Every structure is written in C-alpha cells, then in structure tokens.
Amino acid sequence: MTTYDCSDPVARRAGLSAAADAAAAGNLVVLPTDTVYGIGADAFNATAVRDLLAAKGRGPDMPVPVLVGSWQTIDGLVTAVPPVARLLVEAFWPGGLSLVVEQAPSLAWDLGDTRGTVMLRMPLHPVALDLLRIVGPMAVSSANRSGQPPATSAAMALEQLDDSVAVYLDGGPAPIGVASTVVDVTGDLPRVLRQGAVSLDAIREVAGQVEAAS
C-alpha cells in the first residue's frame, strides 16, 4: 500500500505508473475525481471487481459504475447511444453526470447485477483522466465503506479502506465533494435516479422533459 502526492509532478508520474501496474495485476487503486474519491479496478477483471465490492462491504446487488477517459469510449461499451445521451455527454462530460445505458452484450465483464445496463461517467479531474487513458475503462465506486460518508480526500479513503487498496493517488480535496447526478437513458424519457453534482434544471435545459425519481 503506497500513497502518491500527485501535486508533485515526479510523484504523480510514479503514482500513475504504479496505479496502472496495480490495476493490470488485478489490484485496487484509489483515485481522485471531481465529485468524490473513487476506489477502482480494471473493469474487465471480474475478480478485481468482486474485491472492490468486498472492500466496500457491498454485494453484487449494487453494481459498480464505470469511468471512461474520453467521449468516444462510450460507443464501444453500449448497444447504441440514444440521441439524448449524446446531447448529455456533449453538455456535461467530462463532469459530474453519470448515464445509465444499455451495455453491449458482447462485453466480457461482471460489474454485479446490472440487468444489461452500465452506469458510465467521464470525470473532470486530470489525474483520473490520465489514469483512465492508460488503463482503459475502470470500474469505480465511491471510496468508502458501505454506509459511511464518501471520501473527499485520499486520507479519508485510506482511513476507511486501508490495505485493501494497493495504491492511493492523492490529488488534493475533491473539488465538488458530492456524488454525480445519475440519469437513466434506457427508457422513453430520461429519468433522474439521483440528484447530485449536476442540477435537475441543467439536465432539463439539455434533455427537455425528464422524469425525476421520487
């Protein structure tokens, strides 16, 4: 278990290399994002994803979202990108919006009980984006034990997750400090499942009519 201070350029390069190696070896990493800190694994390593859920004290009934490093990545992960999803991506990625879409059936991953969907987001944080562009899509959930507050710093993540994580990338305090807004675009109308970093009004300005979860 090693923590890297990503405010130092040399430590940042070393940390990104160590985190990429850890993910390739099936180990867990903690990374900063614009919303909260995340605990991540290679999205295509089912054992690592199970270890991620175990570290959080969570079961497969709460599947793990996936972070991507570019707009284009979404096209290879879904059956089809609905037009409204494309509009939301262009408006809010990278940023605090997660989209629930129908995943491509050919994908060889196991993120939990997803029922054929996947939650995708492109975070607005340079360290996260650098790591995602090295590793590829990563299964990432908030870096906290289930039922505890999401970590907004590497120290908070370390306090909760300790040596279940191989590498901690410290990118300073999370800029937003609240979880992403989640919008399901698999139905006839976009449905806001969780209100967070992006306001409901901002979603409506782009998507038009949306349903808000009660």
Rank of each mutant, 00 (worst) to 15 (best):
D5A: 04
D5N: 15
D8A: 00
A11T: 05
A14C: 07
G15S: 14
S17Y: 07
A18L: 03
A25L: 12
N27V: 02
V30F: 11
L31I: 14
V36F: 04
Y37T: 15
Y37H: 09
A43C: 03
A48P: 15
A48H: 04
V49K: 08
L52N: 01
R58F: 12
P65M: 04
V66R: 07
L67D: 07
G69Q: 06
G69S: 01
G69R: 01
G76A: 09
L77A: 01
A80S: 14
V81N: 00
P83L: 10
A85C: 03
A85M: 04
L88V: 02
A91T: 12
A91N: 09
S98D: 04
A108P: 13
G116I: 05
T117V: 06
V118I: 13
L120T: 13
L124H: 09
P126Y: 04
V127N: 07
V127Q: 09
A128C: 10
L129K: 02
R133T: 07
R133A: 10
I134H: 13
M138D: 11
A139C: 05
V140G: 00
S142V: 00
N144K: 13
S146K: 05
S146G: 01
P150C: 14
P150F: 11
A151H: 12
A151P: 06
A154V: 14
L158N: 13
L158I: 15
L161D: 07
D162F: 13
A166P: 09
G171E: 14
G171T: 08
G172R: 13
P175D: 12
P175T: 03
G177S: 04
A179M: 06
T181M: 00
T186V: 08
T186M: 11
P190G: 00
R191W: 12
L193S: 13
S199C: 05
I203F: 08
R204L: 00
A207H: 09
A207Y: 06
Q209T: 15
A212F: 14
A213I: 02
